[in-house]
């Protein structure tokens, strides 16, 4: 039972991450490959506030989301006006910089040793949320709230402008909207919710180190997004389900451990190639992936 609950908790965390990635990638047409950097920034800020201040969950969540969002402005202000590959390179650079800082600034992050003993979050400042059942409830409620929030965002006038930006930036400019401003908003929100996922991860696992927030992790989040599909809510949720549950199913196939990890990569690659050919909008997505 605890094994299944653990999978659901990780699924809920990945739903947050993949939905966050969908906002810039799926709606605003910003192929960002630094989602894991925001996830990591959120996790490390959370570790600091939980270890040093032991603040209530809501307070830590708000602080972490704001700080991670502010960090996103470093990359978004400089790069949202870049197009296509140049934007991807800018986010790649940010991802590498964040990883290098997390890995080498040992006085603060403890570098490769990571930070251990991160306490569980305290709901309302009193009830310490320990144990897998508590995290199952918390992450499930939060992922449902985030699904509703992002659903509302997509249907809102803000979502309308983002969808328009994805289709044609020049037209958006010609009707008096500044696409760069909307892209900054999208990036900020995306980073803030990735930071929230970082908080949940850090407090649930109680140990973090930089290897959880590498470029591979960013690509993994994007893979989930592209498998599920971009532009709507059910696509990213389904994508998260596939990438979290698939490896667990493979465990029961009885493959040798040394082979299982490689096979997983091959399966993801194969799924992506097949999707590009036969279903470019992903399994449940609304929009086709643009070149």
């Amino acid at each position: 039972m605890e094994y299944i609950l653990h999978i659901v908790i990780m699924l809920n965390i990945y739903i947050l991450l993949v939905l966050s990635a969908n906002l810039p990638v799926g709606l605003a047409n910003l192929l960002s490959i630094c989602q894991a950097a925001f996830y990591g920034i959120g996790a490390y800020f959370s570790a600091y506030f939980l270890l040093q201040w032991n603040l209530p969950f809501v307070v830590v969540a708000l602080i972490v989301m704001c700080l991670t969002g502010l960090c996103s402005l470093v990359v978004s202000f400089a790069s949202v006006k870049l197009k296509g590959d140049y934007f991807v390179l800018a986010t790649l650079a940010f991802q590498m910089i964040v990883f290098t800082i997390l890995y080498n600034w040992t006085e603060v992050t403890r570098g490769p040793y990571g930070i251990s003993g991160i306490p569980s979050v305290k709901l309302f400042g009193i009830i310490s949320l320990s144990g897998i059942y508590g995290y199952f409830a918390l992450t499930t409620v939060l992922s449902l709230i985030v699904i509703l929030l992002f659903g509302n965002l997509k249907k809102s006038p803000f979502g309308r402008v983002l969808t328009a930006i994805r289709s044609d930036e020049l037209t958006v400019l010609s009707i008096g909207r500044n696409p760069a401003r909307f892209k900054n908003y999208a990036f900020f929100i995306s980073a803030a919710f990735s930071g929230l996922a970082g908080l949940l991860y850090a407090s649930y696992i109680s140990y973090i180190d930089p290897t959880s927030f590498t470029l591979d992790e960013s690509i993994f989040i994007l893979t989930a997004l592209f498998i599920g599909g971009i532009g709507n809510i059910k696509g990213p949720v389904f994508g998260a389900l596939v990438v979290v549950v698939l490896p667990e199913i493979l465990r029961f196939v009885g493959l040798p451990d040394a082979m299982a990890a490689n096979l997983r990569q091959i399966i993801y690659g194969l799924i992506l190639v097949l999707l590009m050919y036969f279903k470019p909008q992903g399994l449940m997505g609304e929009l086709k992936i643009k070149n």
Binding site: N152, S156, P157, F158, R160, V161
Partner: peptide, 19 residues
């Protein structure tokens, strides 16, 4: 939505304003 977008009134276009 195409028609609404052409309006000069940008009310509700701030994220979560419509929440």
């Amino acid at each position: 939505d195409n028609m609404k977008l052409c309006s000069n009134d940008t009310s509700g276009e701030f994220p979560f304003a419509y929440l």
